[in-house]
Design a protein around this nucleic acid. Structure first.
Lengths: 134, 134
DNA sequence: ATGTATGCAAAACATTTGCACCTGG
DNA sequence: CCAGGTGCAAATGTTTTGCATACAT
């Protein structure tokens, strides 16, 4: 049961939190907007306020349970932080999100920050792409 | 005169447009928010509506005169598109923005997109950093 | 003259917050 | 019981838009 995840994060086990976790775990889309989660909850018969969804997601983010991404288009998308680090490729035609990792890029980023006297706290790499026409 | 830039972009040469270009060219900060530009204009005695600033920036973006970036923090920053491509490092302590280029990273990105059957239309790489404490 | 630009106020949008009420442990 | 969570509505902050007026060419 994911109730444990919540307890481990120091969060009370409540219905909104459990259901939101459930939606994020079982959704086809790994990357969901707050609104998307809100609608998915409705479809499953759970009517929580949108404000609650936002609050829960913010707490989850703070607890390291989810990552928030700010892709273009003005709204945040959230994904379960159940995998190791990766970056994103967003298809501009279909909206599809592809994940990828490249250790060499990660390493180069570290080197660049280091060279300037900084350490990386966080980073965001997003490729906006289109299917090859060929 | 930068009036030519505007004409080349197919835009009428108007006072707001000229002054906004001027501010962006002469500001200490290369990366400005719409509000920041609005305030800089006021300081120079030009009172245009904030809506105009946004509209002009949107047109400039469309014309390729400026780039818009969506760093964390909810608001866009704009910079003159007068340099070749580069990525950004944002200091979380000071808000300072450092630009950098790394051809190897650029190349790796191309390879990754290509490997997945896509071509890159645009990309965003931002490192959120802190000064090395050492 | 005439198609665009602008100004202002109002709308839109995603997100956050205040506060009274509920609930998990 | 009581700290903390939730619902709702209202506030927020950024950006966009509608419409009447002003301007560049």
């Amino acid at each position: 049961m994911q109730g444990q995840h919540l307890r481990n994060a120091g969060l009370k086990v409540t219905s909104p939190r459990l259901k939101i976790l459930e939606v994020m775990e079982s959704s086809d889309e790994r990357h969901l907007s707050a609104e998307g989660i809100y609608r998915a909850l409705l479809e499953r018969g759970h009517e929580f306020g949108l404000a609650t969804v936002y609050r829960v997601l913010a707490q989850f983010e703070g607890a390291g349970l989810v990552d928030r991404h700010n892709f273009e288009g003005g709204m945040s998308v959230f994904e379960l932080a159940d995998r190791s680090h990766h970056d994103h490729m967003v298809c501009l035609e279909t909206g599809k999100v592809i994940e990828f990792v490249n250790d060499r890029i990660e390493q180069l980023q570290e080197e660049i920050a280091d060279r300037h006297g900084y350490t990386i706290e966080d980073h965001s790499l997003v490729l906006y792409v289109r299917p090859k026409s060929s």
